[in-house]
Computed example of a mutant assay.
Amino acid sequence: MLTESDTTSPPGTAAAPVRRRGAAYAWRRRLHSTWVALLAWAAALVFFFPVAWMFVSGFKREADASTDPPAFVFTPTLDQFEAILGRDFTPFLLNSLMASIGSTILVIVLATPAAYALSLAPVGRWRDSLFFFISTRFMPPAAIILPLYIIANNVGVLDNATMLSLVYTAMNLPIAVWMIRSFLLEVPTAVLEAAKVDGAGFFTEVRKIILPMIAPGLAATALICFIFAWNEFFFAVSLTSTRAATVPVFLTGFITSEGLFLARLSAAATMAAFPVILAGWIAQKWLVRGLTLGAVK
């Protein structure tokens, strides 16, 4: 017959396996997190390596940049950057800034009321309107370049930064409408109803409630539209020649029949990427908040 002493476990013996399993589970979680972090860093380094190599190559001489295998040890020089500045880089930079900033401002101004009408105050057949906006992106740029060129030539705005800014506005407007609409859908309707009860008019509601709440989303949309406009090449090379040529058009000048000036092209590309990197660094807080604003219901 079993006695009470036989059936009763010593204190703490039942909890010991549970603690061991908990410690093993925590150790596996830490190991899994470590592997995920290492894979993320490896992927980031793989994707960032071309940018880092471009930056490093900008400080090489042409002889060092064209060696096979690549030269990792070299004497840095600023000759390539001085040569870029000596080739009148500033007008191309100003043209890109004018076209990109102008189009970004126009996109935000036009897309915000359109997104409002398709989200908080939906118009009739709003699904068809949304599809129409995004369908304008289906047509390849090569299919519309000839009509655009003829119109610009007849109006007298060919090789003009203003014309380029309008083209970039039309190019980025559908994406901006869809993005800003997703941010507006996250605005709580209870807040808007409370504002109406307190006597807030339409413009007060927009200015003091809606715009401050979606400001990170607007910043993210503006930065993305700015990057798309800054990097655009096809319309810039087709609709400009000398007066309104942008930075991407300037970069093609280093690919000639004499060969590829790799070091100088790397220096020019580094200078071309700097404004976008600076804008992203300044707006990184709003960019992260804006990109996640419309992601979670």
Rank of each mutant, 00 (worst) to 15 (best):
M171N: 03
D64C: 04
A71I: 05
P10G: 09
E232R: 08
G102V: 03
R21D: 08
L164R: 01
G294Q: 07
E205I: 08
V237I: 03
I214W: 12
A16C: 03
L192V: 08
A245W: 03
F203Y: 12
A99Y: 04
D88W: 11
P188S: 02
L93H: 02
N160R: 04
R289N: 15
V51Q: 00
G86K: 00
P50C: 00
T3G: 11
V107I: 08
T34E: 05
A269S: 15
V51W: 01
F48K: 00
L38Q: 04
P188I: 01
A273D: 11
V237A: 02
A117K: 04
P174Y: 02
T3P: 02
V197H: 10
R264G: 12
A267W: 14
I282W: 13
D68M: 07
A99N: 01
S5H: 12
A114Q: 03
V206H: 06
D6L: 14
A83F: 08
A268P: 14
A63K: 06
A222T: 01
E4D: 10
A143H: 10
R207N: 14
S266Q: 10
A283Q: 07
L184V: 06
A42P: 00
L218Q: 11
W35T: 11
K208F: 13
F234G: 05
F234S: 02
E205R: 13
V107K: 02
M271E: 04
A43I: 13
V177E: 10
I277K: 08
A15P: 04
I144R: 09
F183M: 07
W230Q: 05
V191L: 15
A111R: 11
V167K: 00
I282Q: 06
L120T: 10
V107E: 00
R87Q: 13
E4L: 13
K60R: 15
A267K: 15
L39P: 01
L31P: 01
S9F: 05
I180M: 11
S9G: 04
A272P: 12
A143V: 14
F48D: 00
P122K: 11
A52S: 00
A115C: 09
V109A: 12
A65W: 01
L130S: 10
A26G: 13
E186P: 02
T252K: 04
F59V: 06
G156N: 04
V276W: 03
L39I: 07
T75K: 09
P147R: 05
F202A: 12
A16G: 04
F254G: 03
S241K: 06
M271I: 14
V109G: 02
L239T: 06
G86W: 00
F59E: 01
L2W: 07
V46D: 04
M179G: 03
L287T: 12
T240Y: 00
A229D: 04
A194V: 09
L97Q: 11
L251R: 03
R28S: 09
L118D: 14
G280T: 13
V247Y: 06
I224N: 07
